[in-house]
C-alpha cells in the first residue's frame, strides 16, 4: 500500500470534461489526483508566415505552460527550457494519431495549460490535448493516452504523486494509442534494472487502457447532458 492508500498498480482519481472553453474549437479539462490542466485546440487554420506551410499536410504546434502558482516555489511565468521540451514531447506523441494529410497548408495549434502540478504534468497534457483534438472534430486514428510509472523500494508504482516522485529511482512516462498498443512516447529519468523494463511497460499499457475508458466516457458525456 502507498501513502495515499492506493494499490501499486492503481491510477489516481481522474476527472475529465470536454468542451470547457467557449472560444476554442475544441477544449478539455483533465484532473489526475492533484495535477490538473486545460487544453485548447484552434484550427485547422490558415498558416502564416507562408514559409512555414507544408505543401501536403498540416503542421501541429503545441504550447505547454504552467501557472506561476502551480508549484510550491513560484514558477517564473513564460517559456523556459523545461516547457519547451514538454511542448515538443506532447506534439510528437500526438503526431502519429492525427490525419494531418487532410489539411494541407494549415496549422493545428494546441495550448496546454497546467493549473496545478503534482507530478505527471506531461501525461495530463497529452491526455487533455488528445481529448481537445477529438472535440475539435479533427480526424484521428485513435485517442492518445499517457501515464507515468516509477520504482519505489523495488516495487513498480503506477502514476506517481509529487511525494513519490522525490523518492523514486526512476520516472518513466509512456504515451500510447490504446487500440493497437502503439507507443508514441517513451521517456525515462534515473536508473533501472533492465529486467524491470518489460514489466513496467506492461503495467503502463494497462494503466493507459483505464485512462482511455475515462476519455471515452468524457467525450460521450458531452452530448448526453443536453438530453
Amino acid at each position: 500500500m502507498r501513502n495515499d492508500n492506493r494499490e501499486w498498480d492503481e491510477i489516481r482519481k481522474m476527472e475529465m470534461r470536454v468542451g470547457v472553453l467557449k472560444n476554442a474549437n475544441g477544449s478539455s479539462f483533465v484532473r489526475m489526483g492533484k495535477t490538473f490542466g486545460v487544453a485548447a485546440v484552434y484550427g485547422p487554420k490558415s498558416l502564416y508566415p507562408k514559409f512555414l506551410q507544408n505543401f501536403d499536410r498540416a503542421i501541429l504546434r503545441c504550447f505547454y505552460s504552467m501557472t506561476p502558482f502551480s508549484v510550491m516555489d513560484r514558477k517564473r511565468p513564460g517559456p523556459d527550457r523545461r516547457s519547451t521540451e514538454i511542448s515538443k514531447v506532447i506534439k510528437e506523441s500526438l503526431y502519429p494519431a492525427v490525419f494531418l494529410e487532410n489539411f494541407s497548408r494549415t496549422s493545428i495549434d494546441i495550448f496546454v495549460h497546467i493549473e496545478q502540478a503534482d507530478a505527471g504534468t506531461r501525461c495530463v497534457g497529452i491526455n487533455a490535448a488528445s481529448l481537445a483534438l477529438a472535440d475539435a472534430g479533427i480526424p484521428m486514428r485513435d485517442l492518445v493516452t499517457a501515464c507515468a510509472c516509477g520504482v519505489i523500494d523495488g516495487n513498480i508504482a503506477l502514476d506517481l504523486t509529487g511525494d513519490e516522485e522525490k523518492i523514486t529511482d526512476c520516472d518513466l512516462a509512456l504515451a500510447c494509442m490504446p487500440r493497437n498498443k502503439q507507443i508514441s512516447l517513451l521517456q525515462m529519468d534515473g536508473n533501472i534494472e533492465s529486467e524491470l523494463v518489460n514489466n513496467i511497460i506492461k503495467m503502463l499499457l494497462n494503466g493507459c487502457d483505464k485512462i482511455y475508458e475515462k476519455q471515452k466516457e468524457a467525450l460521450k458525456h458531452k452530448y448526453e447532458v443536453n438530453e
Binding site: 494519431a97 477529438a134 480526424p139 484521428m140 486514428r141 485513435d142 485517442l143 494509442m177 487500440r179 476519455q215 471515452k216 467525450l219 460521450k220 452530448y223
Partner: peptide
Amino acid sequence: MKREIVIPGE
C-alpha cells in the same frame, strides 16, 4: 431511434 455516438478510433 437513438443516435450512436462514436469517438476517433472506435
